[in-house]
Design a protein around this nucleic acid. Structure first.
Lengths: 222, 222
DNA sequence: GTAAGATTCAAACGACTGTTTGAAAGCGTA
DNA sequence: TACGCTTTCAAACAGTCGTTTGAATCTTAC
């Protein structure tokens, strides 16, 4: 069906079918949500046959899981690595809350840079998924996040020795909420800004802002 | 089709069709999302005929809007009222950030009490809607929120005179994110709490926690 | 070359979607 | 009772959904 060039030299921009499905799905899931994104839309955008998603992934549900595991696993591995690095450098001394949150937030940024534009797309998708009720997405996220969350909880407990555990758990919950929403609705900032002056900032500035916000919230006096 | 009692005395628990649709829709939208909730599921749960939703509301999209406007308008009116009350009592003196956030957060709680259980259902639904990409839900929320957001932004700017406007806008953005996520994922707290000790708190305790978190974030030093 | 296996393709499957229809039923009023 | 109006109802509409199928095509190795 390719009319213009019968056989371009299987060069760049031609990923294999599987990867093209993953990329199109990632972006479209972010734009329209999971249940509102049809396989026909995905395969149409990826320029692959409809049946190939079932051939390569088995089902739509499995495709959703594949979209997440592809990016989430490396991201959370990086986060734990960064935290380990910090603690090794601190040599027993407790880290500051700033350092810990920085390790968590900025790892996401690095992933964003690694994969250029597609990384930020995934970050927003991640925010969406956290509040998506359907299917097994939530339980999948729980599994993928349980390790890194436990790790950061331990570090934060050491940095905030006077904060009861229950209080810490809730504040981490709020923290995840802020991040999820910030990622998901980066474009929705216009909802609350009458002037459009806030849009000109790049992602790193925004992440520094959210870090400052989160650190203050976590350190709030009892 | 009602087998047990042919004609119960059209007494309590029989709202009119319109209200029963709204209540069933509110709960099911929260549980499964918007596009994943079919009209047949709603009308089945509400025990009304399938066609009645198109008869009373016109379309599914219009039903979604009706679900929101029914609760959001009074809620935001209450928020503005509370803020006006505080400023009148302060007699020209600037309010504290605590007072302002309290007015915003606790108004939601009052609505939760007014309608008993259904209020909290709507609060979670609201969180969902904020990150729902599909349809015109977002733009509807923008319209419903624009007034109250502008009002609280003005109050916060007076309470935080040293904070640049752009910074304030972003911190309000984070604040909305935290609240949306807290409402949406109250059940998802188990994601990050290995022990299930945190679930026993009632809603007012949680809201006091989130208020403390938000106030600290908003007052974070530049 | 041919055969075997992996992959793509167009077409169709049954199930489900939101919406429409026209008749049936309820209901207040004259 | 008979009327007009509102509301309910079962049935069907056209369309989309995820998935399956079997043949066509590509790839690799002998």
């Amino acid at each position: 069906m390719t009319v213009s060039i019968p056989s371009l030299p299987h060069d760049s921009d031609h990923h294999d079918t599987k990867a093209r499905i993953l990329e199109a799905a990632e972006r479209l899931f972010m734009e329209h949500g999971f249940s509102a994104t049809s396989l026909r839309l995905i395969t149409g955008e990826a320029k692959v046959n409809l049946a190939s998603v079932n051939y390569h992934f088995g089902s739509k549900e499995a495709l959703i899981e594949a979209v997440f595991t592809r990016r989430l696993a490396p991201l959370n591995r990086e986060r734990v690595t960064q935290l380990n690095l910090l603690e090794a450098k601190a040599d027993g001394n407790p880290l500051t809350v700033e350092q810990i949150i920085d390790a968590f937030v900025m790892s996401a940024l690095q992933m964003g840079d690694d994969h250029s534009e597609t990384g930020t797309v995934f970050l927003r998708l991640l925010g969406r998924a956290f509040s998506d009720p359907g299917s097994g997405v939530r339980s999948l996220l729980a599994k993928q996040y349980s390790e890194v969350v436990a790790r950061f909880k331990r570090a934060l407990a050491k940095a905030l020795p006077d904060l009861p555990e229950k209080e810490l758990v809730w504040r981490m919950h709020f923290m995840f909420g802020t991040m999820a929403y910030t990622n998901a609705g980066m474009d929705a900032i216009q909802l609350i800004s009458s002037c459009t002056s806030a849009n000109s900032d790049d992602q790193i500035t925004i992440l520094k802002r959210v870090t400052k916000f989160l650190v203050a919230g976590l350190k709030a006096p009892e």
